[in-house]
Design a protein around this nucleic acid. Structure first.
Length: 432
RNA sequence: UCCGCGAUAGCUCAAUGGUAGAGCAUGCGGCUGUUAACCGCAGGGUUGCAGGUUCGAGUCCUGCUCGCGGAGCCA
């Protein structure tokens, strides 16, 4: 079988005749010269077909190619500074595979609704291609980071018997004779159990929120990675989150610069993502809001605009720790120095992208945890297994969750989360 | 759930209450270096749905449907 050639490898084949398989991205023509642009999933390359170098049949065949028709293009690779990718193919042969019907997504602009209805086709355009490749790089970096530090991947269940945090609205489904089951909103409680077994673990999977959110920062189905480490306290947790974020961003800069360029992403903010990331307390965050003249009452959670105002004071992601315990989940440990605040930490991305990480040191005392479950009016029976983790050799431990789509959205500089995932699920969108 | 905005050709958008139009896409023709190529010609419309006001409604009013943005919730 002949060697397969791909557009992204053409630089290594200058002067050689290669055969590429792909789809017609666009074409332009003069009377005696035609420029078919081939897209093969790894990149774009423009073919240069000159009438005098080809049989009339092959030359005219190019006219039949409609946008997105599949075809084989054979030609000699030539370095060409005028070409966007730096290389062109002097065409020696064209073979048509399948002529495409009239393609709905033209090289001109379209509305978001139209494109989302054709998401399965929209993925072929270069902007979406770049986003998906960066998403892949981010996911790979996440796994490489934890795998390289001795973490074990432990998958948590999607069906759960009860709300994890008791706050947000969950998707409900009938589960045989066992009553109702819910789609998970977090793998964290299971990650805690796994951390007691394996020390350093992470879960990585889809999570679901049935909130009727209609904003550019929300999806009903999104991916989250949640590390959990036995014997880590809040500071260890922040150290881990810091190393983690720096690793992800730097690996995208290093490996996906072409895609960032396609997206016209200003990488100045990304290049500044280096240790140390600033760490401020909730109290200090409130001071910033007050100095900016915003009315804000101690004890409330930070809203979207509050987060933006605070993050604008810094040139890189920042950590806000020690939130009022009242606004945080029941399992978060209180600060021994000040029981009014929880040992929680959120990481706010710059440029108004908001919260990309939320985490905490967990409550490891059985009696206090029981008390919190009562205070939050949660069914204790559903949490007995979770309480067992405090009954049998409880230790301090901490972890956090990172939202993959929000991270993709920030790193790519997107204005909506729906472009950060191949097939977005939102309140008014279940297809394609 | 609440607040605001919108729906006109396949797509993106115009149209003082007075003959519904442009660019792109599609088809045909032209061009040997095009870069969202360009030039010429052609086809293409139940103005979201249902009422109302008016001599006359894409335009004004009422209701509905669908969508978009924001708040709340959070990753």
């Amino acid at each position: 079988m002949a060697t397969k050639f791909y557009v992204e490898d053409l630089a290594q084949h200058v002067g050689e005749e290669v055969t590429l398989q792909g789809w017609l991205y666009n074409k332009r023509s003069g009377g005696k010269i035609k420029f078919p642009i081939l897209r093969d999933g790894t990149g774009l390359v423009q073919g240069v077909a000159v009438k005098s170098n080809l049989s009339e049949e092959v030359f005219n065949r190019i006219d039949q190619l409609t946008q997105e028709s599949s075809f084989v293009m054979k030609g000699k690779v030539r370095k060409e500074d005028r070409a966007p990718g730096g290389y062109e193919l002097d065409v020696t042969d064209i073979e048509i595979l399948k002529i495409a019907q009239e393609y709905p997504i033209t090289p001109k602009e379209h509305g978001v609704e139209f494109l989302m209805d054709r998401r399965h086709l929209w993925l072929r355009s270069s902007r979406q291609h770049a986003i998906l490749r960066i998403r892949h790089q981010i996911i790979k970096s996440i796994r490489d980071f934890f795998d390289g530090r001795g973490f074990t991947l432990v998958d948590s269940p999607i069906f759960t018997p009860a709300a994890c945090e008791g706050t947000s609205t969950l998707f409900e489904t009938e589960y045989f004779d066992l009553g109702k089951a819910y789609l998970t909103q977090s793998g964290q409680l299971y990650a805690e159990a796994a951390a007691m077994a394996l020390g350093k673990v992470y879960t990585f999977g889809p999570t679901f929120r049935a909130e009727k959110s209609k904003t550019r920062r929300h999806l009903t189905e999104f991916w989250m990675v949640e590390p959990e480490v036995a014997f880590n306290d809040l500071n260890d947790n922040m150290d881990l989150a810091e190393d983690f974020l720096v690793y992800i961003v730097q690996s995208v800069l290093k490996n996906r610069s072409a895609e960032l360029k396609t997206l016209e992403r200003n990488t100045a903010f990304l290049e500044r993502v280096q240790k140390p990331l600033p760490r401020i307390s909730y109290d200090e965050a409130v001071d910033i809001l007050h100095k900016k003249g915003l009315p804000f009452e101690w004890g409330n959670d930070l809203g979207g605009t509050d987060e933006t105002v605070i993050s604008e004071q810094f040139d890189r992601p920042l950590m806000v720790h020690r939130y009022p315990a009242e606004v945080k989940a029941f399992y978060m440990k209180r600060d021994p120095q000040n029981p009014k605040v929880a040992l929680a930490v959120d990481v706010l991305a710059p440029e108004g992208y908001g919260e990309i990480i939320g985490g905490s040191q967990r409550e490891d005392d059985l009696d206090l945890l029981l008390q919190r479950i009562k205070e939050h009016d949660l069914p204790q029976s559903a949490f007995e297994w979770y309480l067992d983790l405090r009954r049998y050799g409880s230790v301090p431990h901490a972890g956090f969750g990172l939202g993959v789509e929000r991270t993709v959205s920030w790193i790519c500089g997107l204005d909506h989360l729906r472009e950060a995932i191949p097939f977005a699920r939102m309140i008014y969108r279940l297809t394609p």
